[in-house]
């Protein structure tokens, strides 16, 4: 096994710090919004754009790390950019949909269409993930992602089934269906982590 070079270690650290900064900023902003200390929702969702901007240096640092650790490819870069665009579109779509839904009664008749505003960017994320697996020519990197995706799918099915029965037996409250994608993404991260621990 090769030792990590100083540049590799530094790139990992920088990417990690940006990821932490992004998560802290997102949670802090969400907390302030929830407590009504900045501005009440739905306009407050516009404020979420600010921590979202941290995604840009985070993705750039991640790409630098991928180059240093030898797992960068044009396909990975394309995937990162597609996810970045979809993430911004999601926040804008969600904010816009909530704003229209809460402030304009007439818009409620178009609720199904409004629901599409945050949904379409999520479709974009799913499409970006599928394109990555199709376009990635490096079979090892592809296998690693597919393994992580299988773990994510298994985890989502297990959690959804268990939670479903908890709801049936009135132990737990019903959870909105849109939580499926973030849960799957958490599973994907966990899958990559398991792969790393197992040395894949």
């Amino acid at each position: 096994m090769t030792m990590a070079s100083p540049a590799e270690t530094a790139a990992r650290r920088t990417a990690g710090l940006w990821a932490i900064a992004f998560l802290v900023a997102m949670f802090a902003t969400a907390w302030f919004l929830k407590s009504g200390k900045i501005v009440a929702a739905p306009w407050g969702l516009a404020v979420m754009i600010l921590p979202m901007l941290l995604l840009i240096p985070m993705v750039r640092a991640t790409e630098r790390m991928q180059r240093e650790t030898g797992c960068a490819s044009a396909v990975v870069t394309r995937y990162n950019r597609r996810m970045l665009v979809a993430s911004f579109a999601y926040v804008v779509g969600l904010g816009g949909a909530l704003l229209l839904f809460r402030q304009h009664d007439a818009a409620k008749s178009y609720a199904a269409l409004l629901a599409l505003l945050p949904t379409l960017p999520v479709f974009g994320m799913i499409w970006a993930m599928a394109r990555y697996v199709i376009e990635e020519k490096d079979e090892y990197l592809r296998a690693r992602t597919v393994n992580a995706a299988l773990i994510a799918t298994g985890l989502l099915l297990a959690v959804a089934t268990f939670w479903g029965f908890l709801t049936t037996f009135e132990v737990a409250p019903a959870v909105p269906m849109w939580t499926a994608v973030p849960t799957w993404c958490l599973g994907l991260g966990l899958g990559h982590l398991i792969g790393k621990v197992r040395g894949l």
């Binding site: 650790t69 030898g70 797992c71 490096d138 090892y140 990197l141 040395g199």
Partner: peptide
């Protein structure tokens, strides 16, 4: 590893994974 990766048109991590027996090509 980088030289070999470029010659094979794969990532350096692929070469490392194959060399260390973590991945069978």
């Amino acid at each position: 590893q980088q030289d070999l990766a470029e010659r094979l048109a794969v990532s350096r991590q692929s070469v490392n994974a194959i060399e260390t027996g973590k991945y069978d090509p």
